[in-house]
Amino acid sequence: MTAQQEKDAQRYCAQPPQRIPVLPSSLSRPRTRAILANHAKWLNGTQLRYSFLDGAGDGVAKAWLTEVHNGFEEWESLGIGLKFRPEDNPEESEIRITFADDGSWSYVGTDCLGIGSSEATMNFGWDPTSPYGKATVRHEIGHSIGFCHEHQNPFAGIEWYVDKVYEYMAGPPNFWPAETTYHNIIRKLSTDQVSGSQWDVLSIMEYGFVSGLIKRPEEYRAGISSPLQLSDHDKEYVRTWYPPLAPHMEELKPFQSSVLDLASGEQADYEVIPEMSQKYQFSTFGNADVKMVLFEQVGEENPRYITGEDDSGEDRNGRFEAKLFKGRRYILRVRMYSTWGSANASVMYW
């Protein structure tokens, strides 16, 4: 590792604050946990478009752009249900990338949708072609699909030498203010926000740390090496969140309800082919928190977003109206947050 690469390996992702839904205090703990654990995840089957706000023509080396492409391809090659497509027009992209010298970071999952279409949702602040830079690319893409920092996992049991952490991060090469250090290192995630019950020290979402910052667990007092590749648990979790799509979908017919026999985090996908061109109502029924989104299938690889609804945390069912055209093919995706009560949840359109 060169001196520059070693310096870069001491620089850390400064993830922006994540948007956490404000839920009614009257909600049950299982319902709250289900919503918080899944709210930032994309619907499975989503095609995420990414663009560069500054590209090769703006002084960014072509090799840097290529390595970012490689990072997206590596995540997709795991056989997940998400697809990534480069897009020339940033305003048409969910993920917008810059290479500004202000650290590396990314918004988490669907938080990207709340950022202005001319603003970046991801940044790489150092050479992404070094071994550590390649790991940084995979780390930031992990954020963009819903992963949080692994060392902030409440099950890690990390006890910090807090003053030393603040002092170390305030110095070179990071120069972080205290609030950035707290948000990205000291702060523990809520148990409601994480999936699983273990700490994966090999995760690409884990920081490496020098000796003298961790008090407990004792085996990490000498520090943690920076993971440089996706771990087995990273691959397992992303396939659980975004499993490979089934080759065929059930067709949802008008006025025929379909039972949503889904566990928290699972998803149902339906083909919708209207026999008449008109406005249709789509709705869920029963006691359930769901995210429901309608796409129009344009070609083989380009589903176009039509509309959607998220009723999580509210005592109502999701419903929306959309004009559909005879003979065209649409896809309805329904991701379950939680169900309660005795009756089965279902979905229907008419």
Rank of each mutant, 00 (worst) to 15 (best):
M1W: 12
A3Y: 11
K7S: 12
Y12R: 00
A14N: 04
P17M: 06
P21L: 09
R31C: 10
R33D: 14
L36G: 07
S51A: 15
F52G: 02
G57E: 03
E67C: 03
S77D: 08
L78T: 04
R85G: 09
E87Y: 08
P90S: 10
E94T: 14
D102L: 04
W105Y: 00
Y107T: 01
L113I: 12
G125L: 01
G125A: 09
V137A: 00
C148P: 00
C148Y: 03
Q152I: 04
F155W: 15
E159Q: 09
Y161P: 06
V162Q: 06
E167R: 14
L189R: 14
D192H: 13
S195K: 06
G196E: 13
S197K: 15
Q198G: 15
M205R: 03
M205N: 05
M205C: 10
I224E: 03
Q229I: 01
D234K: 05
E236C: 11
E236T: 12
P247K: 11
E251W: 08
F255A: 15
S258M: 12
V259C: 12
L260H: 05
Y270H: 02
V272P: 02
I273G: 07
P274I: 06
Q281E: 10
T284S: 01
E296H: 06
E296L: 07
V298E: 11
P303M: 04
G308R: 05
S312P: 02
K326R: 14
G327V: 11
R329K: 15
G341Y: 09
A345E: 00
S346Y: 02
